[in-house]
Design a protein around this nucleic acid. Structure first.
Length: 490
RNA sequence: GGUCGGGUGGCCGAGUGGUUAGGCUCAGCUCUGCAAAAGCUGCUACAGCGGUUCAAAUCCGCUCCCGACCUCCA
C-alpha cells in the first residue's frame, strides 16, 4: 500500500504525510464569516476538507478538526476606515450583530448537513476568544512587532520581514508588494508601513461590538482570531492548516506572521489550499453576481439553471474534480454527474445480491489498490472515482452473469465500496419523500397489477403505467421471465 | 501594470516522457413485446510555432488566449 502524500503550499511539493504526534492529527480550516448566506463556492472548500477529515479518520488517525466561525473582526478592508462586515450588516438590517450571526450560522449548518459534511470536532467563534486574542496581541507587542496608535494595534510587517520570511506562503517578493501598495494612502496615516494590518481595532462610539482591552474598548482584527484559536486547541504547531486559495496572500500570510511573532513558531507543517469554483470560467463570488446559493441549486430556481439537482449529485459533481483544480459549473456537467452518481449508487445496491462462484474472474485486490493509491495521491478523488467505475462495470457484469466472484471476494468488494463510497466520499443514497414504510408494498401492488395487464397482452396500458411511475421517479425494469424490478431515481 | 496558475476529444474532467483515465453525450449492436437498465463496439483529444529526445499532452523557448491574486472574498 502506498503512503499518503499531501501537496504543501509552503514547499510547493507533494510530501509524505507524517503526523507530529501520530496517531493524533490536528487540522485547522478557516471557516466562514457569517454576514450572509454561504454560496456554492464556499461549500466546495469545506467539502474538500470534509474528504480530508473523512479519509484521515478512515486511515485510523485520531483527528481533531477545528473550523472556526468568524462572528466579529472581519473588516471590509485593512485600512483605517474598514468596517466590521457583521457590524455593517447588523446596522443595515437594524439587528443585533449576534442575530445576524445566528441567522446565517443556522443556515450554514443546515446546508453543510444537506451536503453530508461531518461536523468538525470543535467550531470556535472569534467572539468567544477575545481574551486569547488580546493575550496574543500583547505578546506580539512585547516582542516588538506590534505598535499602538490611538487605541489601535498594528502589526509591523516590514520589521517582521527583516528577521523572518513574510512571503513564504504566497511566494511574492516583499519589495514588489510594497511597490504595489504605494497608492491609495488616504485614511491610512496611522500605520507606519503600507502592509501593516490591525491586530486590534479601536471601537468608534457608534460601534456595537466592543470589548475592553489594555488599549481601550475595541474589537479584534480578522487574522488574529485564527492564530489565537488554532494555538489554543491544536497547540503552537499542528499538522494541517487549510482554506481557500484566495486566503493565501493576505489572511494566511498574516496568520503565520502573527504566530511567529508571538511564539517563534510557524503554526502548521502542511498548508492545504483549495481552488475556486467557476461559472463560465470566472470565479464564483457575490460581487460578480454569479454565485449560487445551495437552495437555488436544489430547487433549480436560478437564471442559469434548467432544473434542480440534489445535494448528493452536487457533492459527487465536485468530487469528480481535484480540489486543487478550478471546477467549472454548468447544467451539462451537473446532468452528467447525476447519471454517473445514479449508476454508482445502483451498483452499490447490487453487491449484496450478487451470486457467488468458486472462482473470481477478476482481481479484487488490484481494484482496491488502485482506489487507495489514488486517494493517497493528495486525495485524488476523481481518479478514485474512475476506478470505482471500473468496479461498477465489474459489478454489473457479475450481475449479468458475464463475470464471476467468490464469496470471499464479494465480502472484500462489499466492504471496499461501502467504506470508500459512503464513509470516505460521504455519498449516500437519497430517498425521496414518496418512500415511506408502506410505499414498497404499494409499488409492488402496482407492479403486480401491471404484470397481469401485460399477461393479457395489453402492452399500451402497461407502457402507460410504466411512464406514469417514471414520472414519479420510479423506474421499472422488466425481465424476460422473472418479475419486474424497480429503482428510485429521484 | 506586477506575481502566480491554466489552455486536454461534443461537455465535464484526470494525467507530467513510452501503456484505454473516468463520467456524460452521440452512433451501431446484444438483450427486450417495446422500452429502460446493463453489456459490447465505434467516435482516440491534448492552443499555436520551434527545440531537446529513440520517444512529448507531459521537458525547454517563444507567441496567442483565459483565470486568480495584488481591496473583502472559500
Amino acid at each position: 500500500m502506498s503512503e499518503l502524500k499531501i501537496y504543501n503550499t509552503l514547499t510547493r511539493e507533494k510530501e509524505i504525510f507524517k503526523p507530529l504526534n501520530a496517531p493524533h492529527v490536528g487540522m485547522y480550516v478557516c471557516g466562514p464569516t457569517l454576514y450572509s448566506h454561504a454560496h456554492l463556492g464556499n461549500c466546495r472548500t469545506f467539502l474538500s476538507f470534509d474528504i480530508v477529515f473523512r479519509y484521515l479518520k478512515h486511515l485510523d488517525y485520531k483527528v481533531r478538526y477545528v473550523r472556526n466561525i468568524t462572528d466579529v473582526g472581519h473588516l471590509e478592508s485593512d485600512g483605517d476606515e474598514g468596517e466590521d462586515k457583521i457590524a455593517k450588516r447588523a446596522r443595515l438590517e437594524k439587528l443585533e450583530p449576534m442575530e445576524i450571526v445566528q441567522l446565517y450560522a443556522v443556515d450554514f449548518h443546515k446546508v453543510l448537513d444537506d451536503f453530508n459534511l461531518l461536523p468538525p470536532s470543535i467550531e470556535p467563534t472569534a467572539s468567544g476568544h477575545i481574551i486569547e486574542q488580546i493575550e496574543m496581541t500583547k505578546k506580539i507587542i512585547e516582542n516588538g512587532l506590534g505598535y499602538e496608535v490611538d487605541g489601535t494595534i498594528w502589526f509591523d510587517v516590514e520589521k517582521f520581514a527583516k528577521t523572518y520570511p513574510y512571503t513564504e506562503l504566497s511566494g511574492r517578493k516583499l519589495d514588489e508588494m510594497l511597490d504595489g501598495t504605494r497608492e491609495n494612502l488616504e485614511g491610512q496615516e496611522e500605520k507606519r508601513g503600507r502592509l501593516d494590518f490591525a491586530l486590534w481595532k479601536k471601537a468608534k462610539p457608534e460601534h456595537i461590538m466592543r470589548w475592553p482591552s489594555p488599549w481601550g474598548e475595541g474589537f479584534p482584527g480578522w487574522h488574529i482570531e485564527c492564530s489565537a484559536m488554532s494555538s489554543k486547541y491544536l497547540g503552537e504547531q499542528f499538522d494541517i492548516h487549510g482554506g481557500g486559495m484566495d486566503l493565501i496572500p493576505t489572511h494566511h500570510t498574516n496568520e503565520v506572521a502573527q504566530n511567529v511573532a508571538c511564539c517563534k513558531k510557524s503554526p502548521a507543517k502542511t498548508w492545504m489550499h483549495t481552488n475556486m469554483l467557476t461559472v463560465n470560467g470566472q470565479k464564483m463570488s457575490k460581487s460578480l453576481g454569479n454565485s449560487f446559493l445551495p437552495q437555488q441549486l436544489f430547487t433549480g430556481n436560478h437564471p442559469l439553471l434548467e432544473r434542480g439537482y440534489s445535494a448528493m449529485v452536487v457533492r459527487f459533481f465536485m468530487l469528480q474534480a481535484h480540489y486543487r483544480s478550478t471546477l467549472d459549473f454548468s447544467n451539462e456537467a451537473l446532468q452528467a454527474s447525476e447519471k454517473g452518481f445514479n449508476r454508482l449508487m445502483n451498483a452499490l445496491g447490487l453487491i449484496p445480491n450478487l451470486k457467488t462462484a468458486s472462482k473470481s474472474s477478476f482481481n479484487i485486490n488490484e481494484l482496491k489498490e488502485n482506489i487507495y493509491s489514488a486517494l493517497n495521491d493528495d486525495f485524488n478523488t476523481p481518479v478514485a472515482i474512475a476506478y470505482l467505475f471500473d468496479g461498477v462495470k465489474t459489478i454489473n457484469s457479475i450481475n449479468d452473469g458475464k463475470e464471476a466472484i467468490t464469496e470471499d471476494d464479494k465480502l472484500v468488494l462489499h466492504r471496499l465500496f461501502h467504506e470508500i463510497v459512503l464513509d470516505v466520499l460521504g455519498l449516500k443514497k437519497e430517498v425521496s419523500d414518496i418512500i415511506d414504510s408502506k410505499s414498497p408494498a404499494l409499488i409492488q401492488t402496482i407492479l403486480d397489477f401491471r404484470s397481469e395487464v401485460k399477461k393479457d397482452g395489453n402492452y399500451s396500458k402497461a407502457d402507460e403505467i410504466r411512464k406514469k411511475l417514471e414520472g414519479l421517479g420510479i423506474q421499472i425494469k422488466d425481465s424476460k421471465d422473472g418479475p419486474a424490478t424497480y429503482t428510485i431515481t429521484l
